[in-house]
């Protein structure tokens, strides 16, 4: 296998190097890629969409259709992880000994199969291998998480004016929740943000994007033509495009946030929703 691999690699590499002979040199301002479409985007974006960040404008407006499917790719990855890994409730809830912890005293209670304690603030359900979360990590994360989330919201909201947008902000937001799950344990994290909520948020995020596009369709314009929203938002068509971009960015942010957590939850626990693989 190693020799075959080497041969394939050498042949492919030779082909690529051969082709690179006809490429423009690096950072050549006169290359076709820099002179054909990009001047249009650079010079017209501000007039046509009133968004100073050209990447955001191209991402969410000129090529907004790509981005919608990009969000769908993330969404489908989340669904695939859930579909493949999640152990169905029937298999999981077979008679097993349950462990609870009395939060105030820290006493652990072991219950024989079939018994359970109704959900209350005094008791939390824990895994058999549960150990108390480390104090330093818990405190450190507790200090950091609010700032991380604030920053994430800033990144989403300022996608028009600075590097950022829905994907980046959504990932940071998701990372903050994952940090919480790491610093405490998965059960606590899932209790704060249930599986059902995450699953629905994923779909809601993508629906905000696709729904904005479909709204334009209903307003007698082409799909994703945000200028159709001008009448609804009471602004001129160009500002409407800017607002439309913000709407879809929020949708992207929600979808990415939820999917990141969903993928983490499923992969880190192999679908058992308990601690550890």
């Amino acid at each position: 296998m190693k020799i075959i691999g080497l041969i394939i690699v050498v042949v492919t590499g030779a082909l690529l190097i051969y082709a690179a002979a006809d490429f423009p040199a690096w950072s050549d301002p006169a290359s076709p890629a820099s002179t054909y479409l990009s001047p249009y985007f650079i010079e017209k974006t501000m007039e046509e969409t009133s968004v100073p960040n050209i990447v955001t404008a191209v991402l969410a407006d000129y090529r907004g259709f790509d981005t919608m499917f990009e969000t769908t790719v993330i969404f489908s990855a989340g669904v695939v992880c859930f579909f493949l890994l999640r152990i169905s409730r029937r298999e999981e809830e077979e008679p097993e000994t349950r462990y609870y912890r009395h939060v105030l005293t820290g006493v652990t209670i072991q219950l024989k199969e079939g018994y359970k304690i109704p959900p209350s603030a005094d008791f939390e359900r824990i895994d058999a291998v549960w150990t108390p979360p480390d104090l330093i990590i818990k405190t450190g994360c507790r200090i950091l998480i609010p700032f991380i989330q604030l920053f994430a919201l800033y990144v989403i909201a300022h996608g028009h004016h600075s590097p950022g947008g829905g994907f980046q902000g959504g990932v940071i937001l998701g990372a903050s929740v994952i940090l919480f799950a790491i610093s405490h344990d998965l059960r606590t994290a899932v209790r704060r943000m249930s599986e059902k909520l995450i699953g629905i948020l994923c779909a809601v995020g993508v629906s905000i994007y696709a729904g904005t596009g479909a709204l334009c369709l209903l307003l007698k314009q082409n799909f994703l033509d945000y200028s159709a929203l001008a009448g609804v938002l009471h602004v001129d068509p160009i500002t409407a495009r800017s607002h439309g971009i913000l709407m879809v960015e929020i949708g992207v942010g929600i979808a990415v946030l939820a999917t990141m957590i969903w993928i983490y939850n499923n992969i880190s626990s192999a679908g058992r929703y308990r601690q550890g693989l």
């Binding site: 301002p29 890629a33 820099s34 479409l37 990009s38 001047p39 985007f41 650079i42 010079e43 050209i54 990447v55 191209v58 991402l59 090529r63 790509d66 981005t67 990009e70 790719v73 993330i74 489908s76 990855a77 989340g78 695939v80 992880c81 493949l84 890994l85 994907f167 993928i263 499923n266 992969i267």
Partner: peptide
């Protein structure tokens, strides 16, 4: 146009990065 770099590859690669992450997730699963 000469003052700003070409935005299109960045847009395309944002998509490709996302696709890469999604593929990684599925592969790990």
């Amino acid at each position: 146009a000469v003052d700003y770099i070409n935005p299109l590859p960045h847009v395309l690669m944002l998509t490709a990065i996302v696709v890469g992450v999604a593929t990684l997730g599925v592969a790990l699963a």
